Simulated scan of single mutants.
Amino acid sequence: MGRIGKKLDIDFVVSTGDNFYDNGLTGEYDTGFEDSFTKVYTANSLQKQWYSILGNHDYRGNAEAQLSPVLRRIDSRWLCLRSFLVNEEIAELFFLDTTPFVEMYFSDAENHTYDWRGITSRRTYTAHLLKDIESALSQSTARWKIVVGHHAIRSVGHHGDTQELVNRLLPTLQAYNVDFYMNGHDHCLEQISDTKSPIQFITSGAGSKAWRGDVKGLNEEGLKFLYDGQGFVSVQLTQTDSVIEFYDVFGEVLHRWNVSKELHVAS
C-alpha cells in the first residue's frame, strides 16, 4: 500500500470503518490505536490525512474514543467523525454513519453490546442524517460526488445488500447523480454498477482480513468485479476522468475501471 501510495502521490487515505477489529477501542489511550494504526502505516507516502468512519465493530467498543481529539494529538493523521463532508475541489466526499441504520444492531440478535451514546433515538438520528446528506448533495457543485459508508448498499459478499440502505439511502443517491458509493463491511473487493443511475458501488473491506469463498452471489446484477482476498482500492480523479484500481495485498492490479465526463465550458 505504501508503494502504491508513493507511485500515485496520494493526497489522502479513506478508511471505510471497522478501524479496530474485533471490538473497537476500549478508550482514548487504548494501545490498540498505535498498534493497529500508527505502527502499521509507516510508509512515507501514507503520512497524509486519514479520513475514517465508524463501522459496526467500532461501535462494539468505545465509539466516542475514536472521535476524540486525543487520538489526533497522538497521531495527527487521524480524523474520525460520525458523518462529515470533505471538499477536495473537483470532488466532494460525503461520509455517512451507516451503522445506526441497521435494525439488527438494536436487537438482541447479535448478542453484542453497542456504544449508542450520542444516539438517543435511532429513528430521529437516521432521519436527520438522510436530511443532511440530501441537503449537501443538492447544493454540491463538485465534478465528482462520492459517498462513503461502512455498510454496502449492493454486495454479493457475506453480508449482501443492506436493505435499510437500499430502501432509505439509495433513492437519494440516485436522485442527485452520485458517482461512487464506497464501503467496507464485506471482507472482499467488489465493483457493482447500479442499473438505474451512474452509481458505481465499490467495496473495499479486505484491508486486514478476507473471507475467501464466503460469497453469496444472491444478486449479481451489475457485478463487474469480485475478489475475495485481501487488498485495497485507489481512486484517481481529474476534471474529466476517473480511474479506480483494485489491488491485491502485494500491490498488483487486479481490476481497473475508468469513466469520462464531458467538460462544458461557457463561452
Rank of each mutant, 00 (worst) to 15 (best):
R72Q: 15
F84Y: 08
K39C: 03
D186E: 09
T31E: 13
N62G: 02
S68E: 09
E28A: 06
G217I: 11
D115K: 03
L226S: 05
E220G: 01
L169Q: 11
D115Q: 09
R212G: 11
F250A: 05
E28R: 08
M182C: 08
F246R: 07
T195H: 06
D58A: 02
W144M: 06
F37D: 14
S155V: 03
Y105N: 12
G149M: 12
T99G: 01
Y21T: 05
I244Q: 09
D214F: 01
Q47V: 10
N23K: 13
F180K: 10
T113W: 03
T203C: 14
G213R: 07
F246M: 13
N167A: 15
E28D: 09
H187Q: 06
F201V: 04
M104E: 14
V253E: 14
A109T: 04
N111Y: 03
K145M: 15
S15R: 08
G160Q: 09
I192T: 08
S234I: 08
A152P: 14
L79T: 14
F201M: 07
K48W: 00
A266C: 12
N44A: 10
N44P: 10
R154V: 00
S234P: 04
Y181K: 07
Y181L: 06
E28H: 02
H150K: 13
D18I: 02
E28C: 01
G157N: 01
R123C: 00
N23P: 01
H112P: 00
K6P: 07
I10F: 07
